[in-house]
């Protein structure tokens, strides 16, 4: 018997974006408030897990045709790359810096190189959680 998940799926369609936006907020906010790459990544993946729960694996793969193993690899590359990037400025491995810039609409903003590193962390966390869940889920 095929169950009818219409309530769950409708709710998911709404909630999914709220969770995603919240996770991105937490990620960007991490430098000053609680949050950061790790928690942001976990929340993003929990949003995707919600998607997985209300639809099925095939549907999610169709909607998000991403190989999460590659996401993990990219995340690791970004993290190591930001570390190596500091060599270009004759600084030790993984040196971070920051500065303030004025943008046309947003006004004055702080941009830190640590954010780039955090993107790496974020991608790795999403990559590994979804790799694990998908692998176990596909297993019969």
């Amino acid at each position: 018997m095929k169950t009818n998940d219409v309530i769950l799926q409708t709710m998911t369609n709404v909630v999914l974006f709220i969770v995603l936006i919240f996770s991105i907020f937490i990620f960007f906010n991490g430098h000053h408030e609680p949050g950061g790459g790790f928690i942001g990544g976990l929340m993003t993946s929990s949003a995707l897990v919600l998607l997985l729960l209300s639809y099925d694996l095939e549907t999610v793969k169709k909607v998000l045709p991403i190989d999460f193993k590659i996401v993990t690899a990219i995340g690791l590359l970004v993290a190591v790359g930001t570390g190596m990037g500091s060599f270009l400025f004759d600084a030790p491995f993984l040196s971070q810096t920051y500065d303030y810039f004025t943008f046309p609409v947003l006004g004055e903003l702080e941009l830190a190189t640590a954010l780039l590193f955090d993107i790496g962390v974020y991608l790795v966390v999403i990559g590994i959680t979804l790799t694990i869940i998908q692998t176990i889920g596909e297993d019969k």
Partner: peptide, 27 residues
């Protein structure tokens, strides 16, 4: 480091090397 969240600053800036290896462990 330009951050007010000290935990996060330690994780990604002061001691980013540990974090890098930890995400490697996760991978």
């Amino acid at each position: 480091a330009g951050g007010k969240n000290m935990v996060n600053v330690i994780l990604v800036d002061f001691r980013g090397f540990d974090t890098m290896l930890e995400i490697l462990v996760l991978g």
